[in-house]
Amino acid sequence: MKKVFTRPESFNDIPMHYCPGCTHGIIHRLVAETIDELNMVDRAIGVAPVGCSVFIYNYIDCDMYQASHGRAPAVATGVKRVVPDGVVFTYQGDGDMAAIGTAEIVHAAARGENITVIFVNNAVYAMTGGQMAPTTLMGQKTTTTPHGRESDANGYPVKMAEMLSTLDGSSYISRVSVHDPKNINKAKKSIKKAFEVQMENKGFTMVEVLSICPTNWGLSPKESVKWLDENMIPYYPLGEYKVPAEV
C-alpha cells in the first residue's frame, strides 16, 4: 500500500500546543507541505508573530525569526533585503497584523516588498483571552464586547485582503478558509501560488486564512466550523483579490 497522507518532511514531529480543534495546525501543515513541494526548506526563512502561533518556529523545520508584536513584515523586509535568494514569509494573526502591526503591513505592501504573508484571521485576540480584535464581526461577543460588537463604540471590522489589494505594491492577495477539506485544498493552492509569485520576484503577496478559535468563541470545534461558514464568510468573501498578470 502507498501512503496517501503523512506528515510533511519539514514539519517537526512534536505535539502542538494549540487548543483542541484549533486550525492553526492545519495552516502550519499547509505551509510545510508547500515548503516541501517547492523544495525550498534550505531557502525558506519564516518570521513568527506574537500570539498563539508564536511557537511556529518549533514546528516548521526551516530558519525562523521571532519579531516583536506586529513587526513581522518589517523584520521580513530586512531579512529579504539581506538574503534576496531566501524565500521569506511571515505568519501572523489578526491581533498581530491587523491591529498593532497595521503600519508595518500596509507599508511593506506599499513598498512592494518581495515577501509572503500568511495572515490567520480568527476574528478575536486569542492568546490574551478572547478580546475584541479589529476583525471581530459586528455583534460578536468577546470578553471586551460582552454584549456584542457595536458600531457606536467599537467601529467596524477591517477587511485586510481588500485593503491591501488596492495598493500598487501588492502582487498576489487572496482570502481562503480552512473550515472543510474542500477549502483546505483551495487554501493550499493559494499558499503555494503566493510562494511561487515571491520566487518569481513579483512583489508583495498575502494569503488571508479564515480560521476557527473554539476556545474564545465559546463553541465546540464542530460548532465553530459551522459558525465560520455562516458568519465569517458572508462578511469576508473568499477568493483571489489580486493576481499578477502572467500567473
Binding site: 500500500m1 502507498k2 501512503k3 496517501v4 497522507f5 503523512t6 506528515r7 514539519f11 505535539p15 502542538m16 494549540y18 480543534g21 484549533c22 486550525t23 492553526h24 495546525g25 492545519i26 501543515r29 472543510d180 477539506p181 483546505i184 485544498n185
Partner: peptide, 21 residues
C-alpha cells in the same frame, strides 16, 4: 476507501492514510 479527508482536516496530524495504488 482512503480518501484521506479526515487526515486533511485533522489539526494535529494524528491520522495517516495508506491505500492500494
Amino acid at each position: 476507501n482512503g480518501c484521506a479527508l479526515c487526515a486533511r482536516m485533522c489539526p494535529d496530524l494524528v491520522i495517516e492514510v495508506e491505500r492500494d495504488e
